[in-house]
Write a protein that binds this DNA or RNA. Structure first.
Length: 356
DNA sequence: GGATCCTTCTTCTTCTTC
């Protein structure tokens, strides 16, 4: 009966008591998008269930209330993670929504593309939160707090599924291991790139020893690292002077001769397409835009690169983001930044009201 | 010295039929 009621409510026949939450969540779980499929309810004996249909369709006799529907929603989907303005954007590619203010991706200054800048060790500007930057939001925080409803839904569904399989403790351990692997992978890359381990003339004995846990990942990206040269920055803080956000870029280097902001990722699932990387391209565009507007860096970066490594050592994927695509993702980033700022200001004003 | 920050990852429909 429960399912039947839901089907009536999502086939375009409006049940008056249906909460907006129900509609939003059904939209989120894509129940509204299967026009080609024959409804499994088409074979239902409609005469036999006519009184039931009437009771569901009638606003007078229904026993449902917004409260009971919300309780049902919570039972099926879990509690609402947080209230959020639905994003028109999708995480799988450049977004449709346009930023209110189109801040330039590149800084208007001459780009001194000289070999001099490629001499010497790579920059590594440490994050210094002490110098009046304690309230400057980070790229990761902004992206996390402006996830679309779709993303929140699928992430939450995945989390619940994993907890059902592994238990709370098991899931915690699993997540910690993933983070640990990611961190070790970053450290191994750092060691490799700083010691010039991408040079083809380097013998295996000269290459750094990697922890067992990341040997597969390093093997996975070895063919990509061969094309990485002239490392200019590693794990270096970038701060956008005008937009006032910061982050730590994994690497700035030349990939196949092109200067890129590089982001290293480990993944359990194959990610052969850029669309498999969710918000990663936005993250890269955000770092590049910050770097281009950070006086600590005397050059501009127009390209991006996302490198995905696999633990089993299978060939990793390198997703290049050319300038046109970076500009598109930059716009998406500006939208997310605007959303974050709006959230923040509404939070501040409601907190001020509460104080009164 | 403790607390906090930035990262590190995680998502994308699913079943039937040939």
């Amino acid at each position: 009966m429960f399912v039947f009621k839901r089907v009536v409510s999502v086939r375009g026949i409006i049940v008056p008591q249906c909460t907006s939450l129900s509609v939003r969540m059904f939209s989120a779980c894509h129940c509204l998008t299967s026009p080609k499929r024959q409804s499994p309810y088409s074979s239902v004996d409609s005469e036999r269930y006519s009184s039931l249909v009437k009771s569901v369709m009638s606003s007078r006799v229904s026993s449902q209330t917004p409260e009971s529907l919300q309780a049902e929603d919570e039972h099926v989907f879990g509690p609402v993670v947080k209230a959020q303005t639905p994003s028109l954007s999708s995480s799988s590619g450049p977004k449709m929504r346009v930023p209110k203010t189109l801040h330039p991706f590149l800084h208007c200054q001459e780009n001194p593309e000289t070999d001099d800048l490629e001499q010497g060790p790579p920059a590594r500007i440490a994050l210094n939160r002490g110098q009046g930057r304690s309230s400057v939001p980070s790229v990761t925080r902004i992206l996390q707090q402006t996830l679309s409803l779709d993303q929140i839904f699928y992430l939450e569904r995945w989390r619940r599924k994993m907890i059902a399989e592994l238990g709370e403790e098991g899931f915690k351990e699993y997540s910690q291991n993933l983070f640990r692997q990611g961190k070790l992978f970053h450290s191994a890359l750092e060691d490799t790139l700083v010691s010039g381990g991408t040079q083809q003339n380097q013998s295996p004995s000269e290459r750094p020893e990697y922890p067992t846990e990341v040997q597969g990942c390093m093997q996975s990206v070895s063919h990509i690292l061969e094309d990485v040269r002239a490392v200019r920055a590693i794990e270096s803080t970038v701060h956008h002077g005008t937009l006032n956000y910061l982050g730590i870029a994994d690497c700035v280097a030349r990939y196949r001769g092109v200067l890129c902001v590089i982001d290293w990722k480990t993944s359990e699932k194959p990610k052969p397409f850029l669309s498999n990387t969710y918000d990663n391209p936005i993250q890269v565009a955000a770092y590049a835009g910050a770097l281009n507007n950070d006086s600590n860096y005397k050059y501009q970066v127009e390209n991006g690169l996302i490198v995905v490594a696999y633990k089993d050592g299978s060939p990793g994927h390198a997703h290049q983001l050319k300038p046109e695509l970076m500009q598109e993702y930059w716009k998406t980033w500006l939208v997310r930044l605007e959303e974050f700022t709006e959230q923040r200001s509404s939070h501040v004003s409601s907190a001020a009201l509460e104080k009164r």
